[in-house]
Design a protein around this nucleic acid. Structure first.
Length: 505
RNA sequence: GGCGGUGUAGCUCAGCUGGUUAGAGCAGCGGAAUCAUAAUCCGCGUGUCGCAGGUUCGAGUCCUGCCACCGCUACCA
């Protein structure tokens, strides 16, 4: 058994939860569930980033304290995780007192070992970005992101000796070509690190809503330093015992490209400074695009994830996101696309396959799964074995969409098998009773494996599949080990139920 | 401006280190079947493989230039 630690970024509470948050969280959940199926010791972390100026300002506008404000906002993100059926092992908030204390201890340590120094700094500061801008980066004198005019501020700040770690980071990239995935992001990161790194200010004097610098409480820790440390601190207080030893380092940090730099530069440098192991992989996924300029509500190609989940269920939505868009690339999603996939693949290919299989077992064998005649697995059992191997390979590359493609080829082969065997003909011929047994068993067995393989993607629906197949789905039934052809004998009563995925019209 | 990427059937995309008639899914058309959520299965695609050159016995697959779009990054104003 090995351990598996996967994270989403912590989401900034001032955002409204959107499809991007859902996408990352679902991806992490798929990985977490998959590794649990393998029997790995899994820790799946998500949470919220709650410090910083925007949150403080929003609170002020509402006449609330920052704490009151974030306490309200965090609810939406917890609800999101629940809504997408995420099995996160912990939900961290950067306002947790334990987190704050650990952040202080972390930077105190860096300070004492000389990685942090004091320096006065003067520049144009955008308080929304919490970042300094050079004149040249401004658009018409205003912040390119916020359209507001930055203030000239002069602060005594604490600086982290980022430049000191450039060589080590580059060396690490050299030795670990899969540190940043996909490859294009790796190259991108290497190129900007190669260009050179400057020390960064890691404190803010003009702010109160943050973690105080322990040796100088007039300043607070820069939000990104605060935020990145969540990946460590969560392990230290999520449970009674400290889980750091058990789960560190992170196996996969999932994120969008907008925060690659922080994770590829500041984060490794911080870990080097602390003498800690670096994450095994950063995986940068793409954006789900909503049809771009052709977006039009009347054309039905806008996709509101919450509307889709409410109307069609979480599982079809989870499936669609990873079926439609190659994980790691940008892709266009739309309601129309969702409905097409839903009907052709979920309703027609998979749902209907289950229905017809169970109906035939019911009609020809009184609802009892026949025992398989000896050596009757044939090509299907061979295909299932190959599939299991291919899936292991594609999941190890975090190719979530490629895995679904592999599974779907198998689903199609099962539908083809029905036509080839034509059980309705076999049923008319007493002589071919064993052939009918084999056909029915093989279909049920193929579906059982599909349910196991698809479980990380569609957790609820696959449990229902197993139930209808006559399997009481305890967690051991979902283990990947069980996804071996023929591990089930006949005798169970199938339980045909409502269609798994009713067709949309 | 620099670096990198992309451009293949109506749509979404596969095509690794160059080699038989360029593939898949969807959509469309025709047929078979009737177990099933009228679902399934079978058949049907002469596509300037962005454009123009080049290397090669042979290039979608390598080289050069160009065009379009995207990402990162720099700079002028």
């Amino acid at each position: 058994m090995s351990k598996f630690y996967v994270t989403t970024p912590i989401y900034y509470v001032n955002d409204v939860p959107h499809i991007g948050h859902a996408y990352t969280t679902i991806a992490a959940d798929i990985l977490a569930r998959y590794h649990r199926q393998r029997g790995d010791d899994v820790f799946f972390l998500t949470g919220t980033d709650e410090h910083g100026n925007p949150a403080a300002q929003a609170a002020a506008r509402r006449g609330l304290s920052p704490q009151q404000h974030v306490d309200e906002m965090v609810v939406k993100f917890k609800a999101l995780a629940e809504q997408v059926n995420a099995t996160n092992d912990f939900f961290i908030r950067t306002t947790d007192s334990e987190h704050c204390a650990k952040v202080q201890a972390f930077i105190q340590n860096l300070y004492e070992q000389g990685d942090i120094y004091r320096k006065s700094y003067r520049g144009l500061y955008c308080s929304s970005c919490e970042a300094f801008y050079a004149e040249k980066d401004l658009v018409a004198g205003k912040c390119p992101d916020h359209g507001t005019e930055p203030q000239m501020v002069e602060e005594e700040n604490y600086f982290f000796r980022l430049s000191r770690y450039r060589e080590r980071i580059l060396d690490h990239l050299e030795r670990h070509p899969d540190f940043i995935m996909p490859e294009s992001r790796f190259n991108e990161a290497r190129s900007f690190i190669t260009r050179g790194l400057e020390d960064i200010s890691i404190s803010r004097a003009s702010l109160q809503w943050g973690v105080p610098i322990p040796w100088d409480e007039s300043q607070v820790v820069y939000v990104w330093v605060d935020a990145l440390l969540n990946y460590i601190t969560a392990l230290q207080y999520a449970r009674e015992e400290d889980l750091l030893e058990r789960f560190w380092p992170v196996d996969y940090h999932l994120m969008g490209k907008d925060i690659l730099k922080f994770h590829a530069v500041i984060w490794p440098a911080m870990l080097f400074a602390a003498g800690m192991e670096l994450p095994r992989h950063l995986f940068i996924h793409g954006y789900l695009l909503m049809g771009g300029e052709k977006m039009s509500k009347t054309r039905g190609n806008v996709l509101d994830p919450f509307q889709v989940m409410d109307k069609y269920g979480v599982d079809p939505f989870r499936f669609y996101c990873f079926r439609e868009v190659i994980f790691g690339q940008d892709g266009v999603v739309s309601l129309e696309g969702f409905e097409n996939r839903y009907n052709s693949e979920l309703a027609n290919d998979l749902g209907n396959l289950l229905s017809r299989t169970l109906a035939m077992i019911h009609k020809y064998r009184g609802g009892v799964l026949p025992d398989p005649p000896p050596d009757s697995g044939g090509e299907l059992s061979a295909a299932a074995t190959v599939l299991a191997e291919q899936l292991a390979a594609s999941m190890s590359r975090v190719d979530l969409s490629g895995s679904l493609e592999l599974i779907w080829r198998f689903v199609r082969s099962l539908n083809k098998y029905v036509e080839d065997m034509a059980p309705w003909k076999l049923a008319k011929d007493q002589e071919r009773s064993l052939d009918l047994d084999a056909a029915l068993y093989n279909l049920a067995e193929g579906l059982r494996l599909c349910a196991i393989f698809l479980h990380p993607y569609m957790p609820d629906t696959t449990l229902e599949m197993l139930r209808q197949l006559g399997i009481t789905p305890g967690s051991s039934e979902l283990q990947l080990q069980r996804a071996e052809w023929g591990r089930r004998s006949g005798g169970a009563s199938v339980q045909p139920g409502k269609p798994l995925f009713p067709r949309l019209d």
